[in-house]
Design a protein around this nucleic acid. Structure first.
Ligand SMILES: [Mn+2]
Ligand SMILES: [Mn+2]
Ligand SMILES: [Zn+2]
Ligand SMILES: [Zn+2]
Lengths: 142, 142
DNA sequence: AAGTTACTTTATAATGATTCTAAACTATAA
DNA sequence: TTATAGTTTAGAATCATTATAAAGTAACTT
């Protein structure tokens, strides 16, 4: 478990105590090769499957928000009732399949916007988000 | 009130009875020059100010969703607890000021994306949404 | 016009996600 | 080891939204 030490350090470095719960959540969220997009509900299901001792729902919320505040997670803008989080905290863009509620990062670093409009007076750009909504190709065309 | 006849016809044409409540909501939403972006809560406050007889919260939800289904309103993707609606139902893009929760349409029709990534296999694009998050220029830089 | 019916509105209850609370627990420093 | 601040937890509270079902109304039929 080389990951374990890393996660403990990561937590310590940000002033968060490396508790059993937080380490278990770190393992779910950060010990993977691909970006992970999730809702609290999905995280809860994964935690239930993979962790012997139950983590309370309040702790899942607390921890995810603590990680968000420390910059390890990012909240994603999507319509719908549930909040999505993203382990990729860089400014990036998404494919979103509304049928399956699956998010995927757009890998292409070259994607950009042409003919960017002028920003309203007195305002400055904080972030630009592009969401490409996709559907199955073999769908009835409506 | 030339608008009134128009709204009555609009409702009739879509199989919705032109009730007092619906006409009052139409007036708030559609009888303006600019695109209108709103939450149910904001609509409720406007209705309370402008309409003598109270419209129930349930009717606001019912009506907004009926209008959405008929294609007169569009739901907007934003993070946060509340759902935003938009009287501009065309595919278009937004400025979003998170400090004030204000949405504004990007007027520029020429805005476009360059180096569009390839779509995942078996999927097709349904819609592309660009959100430019803005903040006040004179803000502490964090 | 009166009767009929389907549609609509409404108050209120139910739901579901999220946040709050305050007591029990625990990591860490003294 | 003790003290302390940080953490976890169950459960309550909150807030947006949706469901329910009874009363009201628009529009059609006679
Ligand atoms: Mn948050
Ligand atoms: Mn809707
Ligand atoms: Zn992402
Ligand atoms: Zn708009």
């Amino acid at each position: 478990m080389e990951h374990l030490k890393f996660n403990i350090e990561k937590l310590r470095a940000s002033g968060l105590r490396p508790t059993r719960q937080r380490l278990a959540i770190c393992k779910i969220l950060f010990n993977r090769k691909e970006t992970f997009h999730f809702t609290i509900d999905q995280l809860k299901k994964i935690a239930e499957k993979n962790i012997k001792k139950k983590i309370s729902l309040a702790t899942l919320y607390n921890t995810v928000h603590a990680f968000e505040k420390k910059g390890y997670l990012k909240e994603i803008s999507l319509k719908g009732n549930k909040t999505f989080f993203d382990t990729n905290t860089k400014n990036h863009h998404h494919f979103y399949d509304e049928e399956t509620s699956q998010l995927a990062d757009i890998k292409n670093e070259n994607i950009s916007i042409s003919n960017l409009p002028k920003i309203p007076n007195g305002k400055k750009i904080k972030e630009i988000e592009i969401t490409i909504k996709v559907a199955n190709n073999n769908q009835k065309q409506n």
